[in-house]
Amino acid sequence: MKRRFFLSLSAAALTLSACATMTKEPDIVDIAAGNSDFSTLVAAVSAAGLVDTLKSDGPFTVFAPTNAAFAALPAGTVDTLLMPETKDQLVKVLTYHVVPGAVTSDQLAGQRLSVATVQGQNVHVNGTHGVKVNDATVTSADIIASNGVIHVIDKVLLPK
């Protein structure tokens, strides 16, 4: 009787543990990986070795270019950036899309800001008519992740 009770208690604990793991909110990488519009971005983040960073606690704000944004770059740019010998350049480009802290669109509304990126340079954010980051337009805002927020943009931001 005691053994059966212990076994059923153990099984219940494992079930609760599994449920707790499954109900964890998705992080920035999980959300991007779950959206086919970000497959190029996900491949780039992986090639740059930034997956663990973007899965960490953060919080981060990511201005996430779509596949179409990457496709609009000059021919061969993405292939070149994904090569192992240009990893440093890829890291610079990707971290130029990340701002420390979780910044939502309501915090940007009506503002004109110069914001430091994780890469070290500033992006110019104009929230007076929608939201623009440099010359990219935010097409979908405030995708909330467990470790920050994602804003979808229509162009790849290139550091100077």
Rank of each mutant, 00 (worst) to 15 (best):
M1F: 15
K2I: 15
R4Y: 12
R4I: 10
S8G: 13
A12T: 12
A12S: 15
A13G: 15
L14H: 06
T15S: 15
L16D: 06
L16M: 15
S17I: 14
S17H: 12
S17W: 13
A18S: 08
A18Q: 03
A18F: 08
A18G: 10
M22L: 15
T23G: 05
D27N: 15
V29K: 02
I31F: 03
I31V: 01
A32N: 08
A32C: 10
G34D: 06
N35I: 01
N35E: 11
N35T: 08
S36Q: 12
D37H: 05
F38V: 00
F38T: 00
S39G: 04
L41C: 02
L41Q: 05
V42F: 05
A43M: 12
A43P: 12
A43L: 09
A44S: 01
V45L: 06
S46W: 07
A47V: 01
A48D: 00
A48P: 03
A48M: 09
A48W: 01
G49N: 02
V51Q: 10
D52A: 14
T53N: 13
L54T: 00
K55R: 15
D57C: 00
F60Q: 08
F60H: 13
T61G: 11
T61N: 11
N67T: 01
N67G: 03
A68N: 02
A68V: 04
F70G: 06
A71N: 14
L73Y: 05
L73F: 03
P74C: 00
P74K: 05
V78T: 08
T80L: 14
T80N: 14
T80Q: 14
M83T: 07
P84C: 08
P84H: 09
E85K: 13
E85F: 12
D88T: 11
D88E: 07
Q89L: 06
L90R: 10
L90M: 10
V91A: 13
Y96I: 00
H97T: 02
V98E: 07
G101Y: 13
G101I: 07
G101P: 01
A102F: 10
A102Y: 05
V103W: 07
V103D: 03
S105H: 07
D106G: 09
D106I: 08
D106H: 10
D106K: 11
Q107A: 15
L108D: 04
G110M: 02
Q111H: 09
R112C: 10
A116P: 14
T117G: 13
G120V: 00
N122A: 07
V123C: 11
H124M: 12
V125P: 02
V125H: 08
N126E: 08
N126T: 01
G127Y: 02
G127I: 04
H129M: 13
H129F: 13
G130A: 06
K132H: 15
V133P: 03
N134Q: 07
D135P: 05
V138M: 07
T139K: 13
I143S: 09
I144P: 01
I144F: 08
A145P: 03
G148D: 04
G148S: 04
I150C: 07
V152Q: 06
I153W: 13
D154S: 07
K155Y: 06
V156L: 02
V156G: 00
L157F: 02
L157C: 01
K160P: 12
K160M: 10
K160H: 12
